[in-house]
């Protein structure tokens, strides 16, 4: 199923029009990476499956609300990670969020930043951050969560997220200076 570039939006348009086949196409391409990415944040496969399912139900119902800006995949991830937070809140004991080993992701919308992460000093600086600080950077910057949502995902108070984010920024500034 090789689709030409730029068709994600078209497929989503068909989903919005109530086309279940289109939802199937979207699922075939986007469910796998979503499963993998969620698995790095939650080590309960059953819960991940549930979240993926919730996400595509939300995509089906909310396809018409996609504003057409940015990547469809980013929109799907935004739904998915928030569903994960909701699911973790419902079953706080059944799952644990992978923090230190999966941490250290960074903002990446711009290509320079992306390349910098992989090849430049920023990547090294991130790796040298303490796991708690990296987890906060990951949740807020890479996963695009608000301070409050990040707190829920990581199981820490909102205030702690803010202070750790400030410490992370200070540390990065020092490293890259």
């Amino acid at each position: 199923m090789v689709v030409a570039g730029g068709t994600d939006a078209a497929v989503l348009g068909r989903v919005a029009a109530g086309d279940r086949t289109a939802l199937g196409e979207l699922y075939a391409e986007h469910a796998p990476w979503l499963v993998l990415r969620l698995t790095r944040r939650c080590n309960d496969p059953g819960l991940v499956d549930e979240v993926v399912q919730d996400t595509f139900v939300a995509v089906w119902r909310g396809a018409g609300r996609w504003d057409g800006r940015g990547e469809v995949a980013a929109w799907i991830w935004g739904i998915g990670v928030r569903r994960l937070i909701d699911a973790l809140r419902r079953t706080p004991t059944a799952t644990s969020v992978l923090l230190p080993e999966a941490a250290g992701r960074v903002a990446s919308a711009e290509e320079q930043v992306l390349l910098g992460v992989e090849h430049g000093d920023l990547g090294g600086a991130l790796v040298r951050l303490s796991p708690e600080l990296r987890a906060v950077v990951q949740a807020t910057v890479l996963d695009g969560l608000t301070t409050r949502e990040a707190g829920r995902l990581l199981g820490i108070p909102t205030g702690t997220v803010k202070t750790r984010m400030m410490r992370a920024k200070a540390a990065l500034r020092q490293e890259l200076a």
Binding site: R37, A73, A102, G104, R105, L114, V117, E118, L126, V127
Partner: peptide, 13 residues
């Protein structure tokens, strides 16, 4: 590693 995983996830979007 943390940096590679971050880049991969961003790239996948």
């Amino acid at each position: 590693g943390a940096a590679l995983a971050a880049s991969t996830e961003a790239h996948l979007l």
